[in-house]
Design a protein around this nucleic acid. Structure first.
Lengths: 363, 363
DNA sequence: TGTTAGCACTCAAAACACCCGAGTGCTAAC
DNA sequence: GTTAGCACTCGGGTGTTTTGAGTGCTAACA
């Protein structure tokens, strides 16, 4: 996916290497199409670009480019539009060449204290700036550790377990017990739990540990069971739901998805977040050495079925050691990649500094 | 617009009373329109109904009905479709007359223990059965009382407040403090908090109470402040977010909303739930003595701007004394009101029994 | 007096014909 | 290798016609 950067210069071999002129033309075609949304014809290029060539020459070149698979015409006697492959080439090689426009870069985010609120805000800002559907995940901890764990009695039949994990994410879980417990019993439980579980990560909680604990718990084994379930439920549920989205109705404007059914499917993907999770996993796992972990999926490259008519751009921010989160947008293939990428960069940068500071300030 | 009903077989008084035949025709028109979605003409009615009348007679009657405001023609030389007023009359008077179809009524809901999960499920089932966008709220307690309140130390600089309110809704709030507190101090705080706040409802927490408590807290007043903020934040946030939705993409199929912008606005309303809250408030406050608190808003009657092209049907379930929740659907005005109402009835009934049982079983 | 048949009229939607122009590929000349 | 020129294609807009569902009105009927 990224093995093509020995380019620029010679041009001898390498089948997918395009000569300078073809590149210029391809770039012009795509740039123009991104602007107008109309198929672009040879005459337009002939005027637009600095290379002074007649439309006829351009036509020849374009025919070549079509044969190579970079552009295509929707029907005979129409101009050309980029293929997925064309976009890919643009993003990988053509786009960067532009001067790095020093965006306004003004701080986009208000300072807030709750992580959820901050991330929700990120999603909104991103949607506002790009007019695409956006998503932001809470950081995924490689090994989320239990930092604090406490059981309290709410009433005769219910306990509440409060669990705080790394990153100060708080979870709670109500637990039904069949008989009332005495204060002492609760205290004992707390000691037991904390002895074994404080500082434990999710992986540490294995069958063996559970077995040991159950032995210690004696007659209260069944309650312990419930507590375990509560804890794992809580943690799992937590890991799952922490995706914030915004601007999803922008999807309605992605004209490239002609089909209502597809639009609907995509909206649903945002509604129940299942597929977004998939996407994030994929995106996190294949970290492309890139500066901000920026990744671009174009059309068919999308790891999720329902998004194969779209393009996806994701970036990674880092809260602390090994705690990474993803922020990204899903838009039409005809997208202002340049702007999106730079917006994402700015935002992740801002997030990174926010977290750096709070690190310093905090612990 | 309505000064012309001294005609047609005396019937002296009661302006909005329609004679039997007009009712039948109106009903036929609406029923047919609900089925087909096409404007319905006189000939259709003439054949459809048992009253054996020629199309010409029907035409006369329909002209009357139009003058009275119950139906309208989209353009000359088209059939008639119902107006909001027509639908209203249908829902209020015509619809019930049908035999109460004993629906399958098979239990629709799986038994689950977490309230959130159950409610989410309700939203989904409802969406699945009706093919409309649905919403379900957690019960609103008239006076949500604090049942359990506890402060614990997470690390040197952070406390976590755990709050359980009626209905076993658990909230938590992290609180930054600037200096570490000793165990004793935390204990003192807990005693203070519980003395004053256990069993208190939100209304009880007024300035005076806060003042009193702050006096007692002495030098820890600022921490108390933070805790207050945390608590009210938590409760407020809780009250706000507890709306579950499903099937929102069905909105795309509501052909009556021609406009993309409007569709989009409606989708957004479901996304950030602000307006849904409004809707629910309105719906709960004007409880219409009705069996299941069923309420129907048609078109312009909708209390929320963005829904004025739709119809809304809501019902009320009761978790316990004074703890009521709303479940409802937002669909096109051309909606199978009968089916929707009966589905809602079934679901609320099922919910009610579930809660009855768990009441018995539980406390 | 209410009902009906008949008729002229309306109008949206579909069907058809047409043209226009942007764009192409190809060829022949530069 | 580049370009001018030309014939060709075809989507999209425009104008016209046809069709048919549906109406309102009038006059005759029971």
């Amino acid at each position: 996916m990224s093995a093509n950067n020995k380019e620029k210069g010679d041009k001898v071999q390498s089948e997918e290497k395009l000569d300078e002129r073809k590149k210029k033309i391809l770039k012009a075609v795509i740039a123009n199409y991104l602007e107008t949304g109309e198929p672009v014809g040879s005459r337009t290029i002939s005027k637009y670009t600095d290379l002074n060539l007649s439309s006829a020459t351009i036509r020849n070149e374009m025919a070549d480019l079509e044969e190579l698979g970079y552009i295509i015409q929707p029907h005979t006697s129409a101009g050309r539009i980029p293929t997925d492959m064309g976009y890919r080439f643009y993003v990988d090689q053509l786009m960067q060449e532009k001067e790095e426009v020093e965006e306004d870069k003004g701080t986009l985010l208000e300072r807030v204290d709750r992580l959820e609120v901050l991330l929700k805000q990120v999603a909104q800002v991103l949607a506002y700036n790009t007019n695409y559907a956006t998503m932001v995940t809470a950081p995924k901890y490689r090994n989320k550790q239990i930092k604090f764990l406490q059981l309290s009695q709410v009433d005769d039949e219910k306990l509440v377990a409060v669990i705080v994990v790394d990153g100060d994410v708080v979870k709670n879980q109500l637990i039904d017990v069949n008989r009332p417990l005495s204060n002492e019993e609760v205290l004992k439980f707390n000691i037991l739990l904390n002895t074994f579980l404080q500082g434990a990560s999710l992986q540490d909680i294995n069958l063996e540990l559970m077995h040991t604990m159950r032995n210690q718990a004696g007659e209260y084994g069944d309650i312990l069971e419930k507590i375990f379930n509560g804890i794992t439920d809580a943690i799992h549920e937590a890991e799952k739901l922490e995706i914030y989205t915004s601007g999803t109705t922008n999807i309605l404007k992605y004209s490239e998805i002609g089909d209502v059914a597809k639009t609907s499917a995509l909206l649903e993907a945002f509604e129940d977040k299942e597929e977004l999770n998939q996407l994030i996993d994929e995106s996190l796992s294949s970290d492309s050495g890139n500066e901000h972990g920026i990744q671009v999926y174009i059309g068919e490259e999308a790891p999720v079925q329902n998004m194969k008519d779209c393009s996806i751009v994701t970036a990674t921010y880092e809260l602390s050691e090994g705690a990474k989160g993803t922020i990204g947008i899903i838009g039409p293939k005809r997208m202002d990649y340049k702007k999106v990428v730079s917006t994402l960069k700015n935002l992740t940068e801002e997030l990174d500094t926010i977290f750096k500071n709070s690190e310093k300030r905090g612990e």
